[in-house]
Computed example of a mutant assay.
Amino acid sequence: MGTPRPSTSSSRSSTSSSYSYTPDHEKDFLPNLIAKYGSSTSTAWLEDRYAIWRSPDHQQSNPRVQGYLPRGKFYFAWGPPICRDDPDIRHSVAKEFVEWATKTKKRRVAYCVVDTEFAELLGKEFEWSVLSCVREDVLHPDIKKLEEKEVRHNIRRADRAHVKYDEIKLKAPSYAPPEDVKHEIEAGLDRWKANRHGTQIAAAGLHPWLDAQHRRYFLARDEHKKIVAICILAQIAHDSYQIKHAVTFPDAPGGTSEGLLGHIIREMQFEGCNALTFGASATSEINPEYNLGGWKIRMLGKAYKKIVARYGLANRGQFRAKFGTEDEPLHIAYPPNSFGWSGLVAMMKLMKV
């Protein structure tokens, strides 16, 4: 195994293991990899609260990268690793990351919001416990997705209010929006945040200009050309985009949310986009899948239901379903008897934004 790369991060590294590696928050190498190889979950890794592990064997042409959230005794690996789409390589990278985290860093590892293929690898080959309590809401623009009566009604409402839609094109090398547009968007986002109430739980914060090179910015404007909504798409693998942020400002005419998303779906259809994903949303209950059973999982299921009800975590999926999204299950995996209530609480605390 190669020599671990140096890092100027303040994190400490261990030299007692072949897995010695310094996790860092220096992520200049990461955006291009996410756009080429990443999933909707890996777009969150660019935020400061996510740490990044790179194998000593990592190369830009042959990536071996894992983003994770540290919390107490846990490392929550967020999504599958970024690597070549080969089962043997995914197995190798996951094994290397887990050994580094458990043996060198003495942490417990849980893989969160991973796809079904990767969850099967962890459940069958690692013999980990696997459950599903999250889904990814995906739509394919080549199939008409605006047939729901409420969606059509709201799009017509926005049309009657003379809402118009456009995309701002950010140019190299700065990929910066015009200052007046930036100020207007940020002021609208501030009004939107001021109107939210209670604790918010999400895997990603609101950072509109993060990795602008690989983002697309669609706007809705009212009849006075005032910006009343924004939808930001993040480029990911397989000619797809994640709907990273879709925010309708408090003073927007009725139907603006549906109108803007409908416009984007039509644009993606015209461009031949493979898929649009809203990202992950919670399901109403836990579904045990591998190496789970007994009273512990029943207790965990009851605790999860209470959290979902308290924070309304399933509500996002209900809105997205109006656009004809397809539910693709996502999974949580962990070594047997290593997660439980303390792990669930730790994860939810991390998600409070």
Rank of each mutant, 00 (worst) to 15 (best):
T3A: 13
S14I: 08
S18E: 10
P23W: 09
D24H: 13
D24E: 13
L30T: 06
N32P: 00
I34Q: 00
I34S: 01
Y37I: 01
G38Q: 04
S40Q: 05
S42I: 04
S42R: 04
T43G: 05
D48L: 07
R49G: 03
R54Q: 12
S55E: 04
R64S: 08
Q66D: 04
G67S: 01
G72R: 06
G72S: 07
F74N: 03
A77T: 03
W78F: 11
R84L: 13
R84W: 09
D85A: 13
A94M: 05
K95G: 05
E96Q: 10
W100S: 07
W100H: 11
K103Q: 15
T104R: 13
A110C: 10
V113L: 15
D115W: 06
G123M: 01
K124A: 10
W128Y: 13
S129F: 01
V130K: 06
D137V: 02
D137H: 09
P141S: 07
D142H: 14
I143M: 13
K144C: 15
E147L: 10
V151Q: 13
N154P: 01
R156L: 03
R156H: 06
D159L: 10
R160P: 00
V163N: 01
Y165F: 09
Y165R: 00
I168H: 06
A172N: 07
P173N: 09
P177D: 05
D180V: 13
D180C: 10
I185M: 10
E186A: 08
W192I: 07
K193G: 04
H197N: 15
Q200W: 12
A202L: 07
A204S: 11
P208C: 01
A212I: 05
R215N: 14
R215T: 13
D222I: 05
K225W: 10
V228L: 04
A229V: 06
H238L: 12
H245L: 12
D251H: 09
A252D: 06
P253F: 08
P253M: 09
G254M: 15
G262M: 07
H263W: 08
H263E: 07
I265D: 02
M268N: 08
G279L: 02
G279Q: 05
S281D: 11
A282T: 05
S284E: 15
P288I: 02
Y290K: 03
L292M: 11
R298F: 07
A303Q: 09
A303I: 12
V308G: 02
R310D: 02
G317M: 04
T325F: 06
T325S: 12
T325V: 14
L330S: 02
L330R: 07
I332L: 09
I332Q: 02
A333C: 03
Y334L: 03
G340E: 08
W341L: 15
A346S: 13
K349S: 12
K349G: 12
L350H: 10
M351Q: 08
M351S: 10
V353N: 12
V353D: 11
